[in-house]
Amino acid sequence: MRAAYSTSIARPNYYWLVPYMNISNADHNISLGNSDLKSTYAHNLDLIASYYPGNVASLSAGLFYKRLNDFIYTYATSSFTNSDFAKLYPTRSNPIPVGEEWDYKTHHNGESVDIYGFEVSYNRQLDFLPLAFLRRLSLYLNYTYTHSKASGITNEEGEERQGMMLPGSAPHTVNASIAYEDKHFTARLSYNYTSSYVDELGKNDFEDRYYGSQAFLDFNANYKIKQNLQIFFDANNLLNTPLYYYQGQKDRLMQLELYKPTFNAGIRWNL
């Protein structure tokens, strides 16, 4: 059993702090930095229990809680109007014609966010299998659940939005792999899943952008001919998983990118 308490700090991206305003009349978008961004300060509490049934297996489970103060999130909207610009920047020349809606993007600090969840992992060499070469197989499984509640995020009327999760935090993640290893040959088949999560926040629920769920299946193998000479093979994205974003609900597709599986093979020689 282990318990740990720690603090940490995450500073804003340097570019986000630059006090610039980029206005593109051709593309109808405005992006700007925020020199008032504060660093995020975190309090972390972890409780972990581990069990080792023999020398070829491990089972662990943990609870975690984090409190983030002044967390940073991306704010973006595609309905930024002439009156919105005038309200935020009354001393600047207004580039948005009346009646038009432009894209707008910047970064803000929220007040605080509470994050909590649990993680379970299992690792086992399959030494109980009947055939000798199968006993060189090993199995790894991991599941993490994360829930968060953020405060200090406002809507277009300046009212605080309720029930908001931390942008960039996926509620469910799964990692699994089965591997083989002997003196000359290693191979691994890996599966990774991440559920959908809020990526950027807009004026309201309708404009929030979500990163869609993704599941990847990858395979890699390596054969050692000599100590400094190896043959390798990699196959990635075997499930042909797309990258996609949606607006508010999954049926409102914003962006879709298809990459297909990729394969890579070669010889590696180390001097």
Rank of each mutant, 00 (worst) to 15 (best):
M1R: 02
S8Q: 08
P12Q: 01
Y14V: 06
Y15G: 01
Y15E: 07
Y15K: 04
S31K: 07
L32A: 01
L32W: 04
N34Q: 07
S39Y: 03
Y52D: 07
P53V: 02
A57W: 07
S60N: 13
L63W: 09
A76E: 15
A86E: 12
P90I: 10
T106I: 04
N109V: 08
S112K: 13
S121G: 10
L129P: 05
S138V: 07
H147D: 15
A150G: 11
I153W: 09
T154N: 12
E156Q: 15
E157T: 15
G158H: 11
E160M: 03
G163D: 04
L166T: 05
P167L: 03
P171H: 01
T173K: 09
T173V: 05
V174R: 05
I178N: 02
K183E: 15
K183H: 12
R188F: 00
Y191D: 00
N192F: 12
V198H: 01
K203P: 07
N204A: 08
D205P: 03
R209F: 11
S213Y: 06
A215D: 14
A215S: 15
I225A: 12
I225M: 14
K226R: 15
Q230K: 13
F232C: 04
F232M: 07
F232Y: 14
L243Y: 15
Y246E: 10
Q255C: 03
E257C: 00
P261T: 11
F263H: 13
I267E: 03
W269Q: 09
W269P: 05
N270S: 10
N270M: 07
